[in-house]
Simulated scan of single mutants.
Amino acid sequence: MKSIFRQVGLFGKYQTTAAPALAASTRAALEDIAEFLSSQGCEVVVERDTAANAGLTGYPTADVVAIGTQCDLGLVVGGDGTMLGIGRQLARHGVPLIGINQGRLGFITDIRLDQFRTVLPPMLAGEYDEDHRSLMHANVVRDGQAVFDALAMNDVVVNRGATSGMLELNLEVDGHFVANQRADGLIVASPTGSSAYALSAGGPLLHPALPGYVLVPIAPHTLSNRPIVLPDAVEITIELVSGRDASANFDMQSLASLMHGDRITVRRSQHKVRFLHPKGWTYFDTLRKKLHWNEGAPLTP
């Protein structure tokens, strides 16, 4: 089968502090995948930092923006964190992404590393299911000026400091006051992020096709303060009233320190991330595998 994708951008997990054995394993995996893509008729372009930190040579390199403008497909080798970072950057370019899991969970990098040789050929030939994931556009407003701006695919989290007490937060939706909350923090999660930190904090799972957000308090002072699901057409505003060492985290990959009176706004981004999955993939397959559903002993009469 001939690939319908002419140029493929290859991204990897490239922490420079990784143990030598892990770094060697990453380099070997990237080399194998790059060679395989070339054998399928694809021109491989390796993301510049991936190539430098993995020691991968023999292929043209480019930064993420250049890959977004020139490549037909992005192939991400790593865990969900790697995919989150690349997905946010490539969403504005509309480049579809395939994830090969070299991490722990793999909710959004769903092809096992040992299966790529059998799973990729039909996908490269056009036999795949496409899945669009919404992004959140968030910013921190201080004294009427935006001092921080970020995209998030999973969640926006307002958190207390490691050694400080509870935060006091005012919550608004579309400019309407909702509640004053005292808690360790508050999570605004997309359907994609509903299976991440929000789930650990007691939130519900949202199917990725749902146009909504879930607001999940972290260790609330009032036990009646429960998670709530909202439509993603609204604008959510969280104001920090009191509390020390508070911060706002965006996909746990970028962070803004907060001051009293800061307002964190979250709204739907105009961009979406395009994921490609093997033909026949469903979200429920992922839940069964990653959450280990149906693994208990069968019931006996």
Rank of each mutant, 00 (worst) to 15 (best):
P60S: 01
V140K: 00
A18S: 12
A29Q: 10
T50G: 15
G106D: 12
E127A: 14
T17I: 11
G126W: 09
L206F: 01
V273Y: 03
G12W: 13
V234S: 07
G144Q: 03
P20E: 08
E130K: 03
F250K: 01
V76D: 04
G144R: 09
I108C: 08
T282G: 01
T26M: 15
V158F: 00
G202Y: 04
I33G: 14
V173H: 03
A66N: 14
A179W: 00
V156N: 07
F284S: 14
Q253F: 14
V241A: 08
Y197M: 10
G175A: 05
V216P: 05
L240M: 13
G203I: 06
N170I: 00
S164M: 08
L37V: 09
T109M: 04
R133K: 13
V241T: 10
S134K: 09
D129G: 06
P231T: 07
H277V: 14
M153P: 03
I187S: 05
Y128M: 12
A34Q: 14
N249I: 00
Q270S: 09
V214W: 12
E43P: 02
H207T: 08
N53S: 11
L90R: 11
L169P: 11
L10G: 02
A219G: 02
P204A: 13
V147N: 02
P121D: 08
P204E: 00
A54V: 11
E235D: 13
D72I: 05
A162K: 04
G280K: 03
M166C: 07
H176M: 14
C71G: 09
P20W: 12
G202H: 06
L223C: 03
N294L: 12
F177C: 05
L10M: 08
G243N: 01
A54I: 10
L30A: 15
R104F: 02
G185F: 10
T50W: 14
Y213R: 10
L90G: 13
D155M: 01
L120G: 10
P204C: 04
V8Y: 07
A162N: 02
T300V: 11
V156H: 05
T222K: 09
V178I: 14
I100S: 08
V65E: 15
Q270F: 02
A179V: 10
R104S: 07
T17C: 07
L75V: 05
N154P: 07
A28Q: 15
N154V: 06
S39V: 06
K13Y: 14
G103L: 08
P60Y: 03
M166Q: 11
A196W: 01
G9F: 06
H271T: 02
R274G: 00
A62G: 09
G165Y: 02
L135Y: 01
R263W: 01
D63H: 12
K289P: 01
G99K: 10
M259Q: 12
P211S: 11
E127L: 08
L105V: 14
T286Q: 04
L291F: 04
F275E: 06
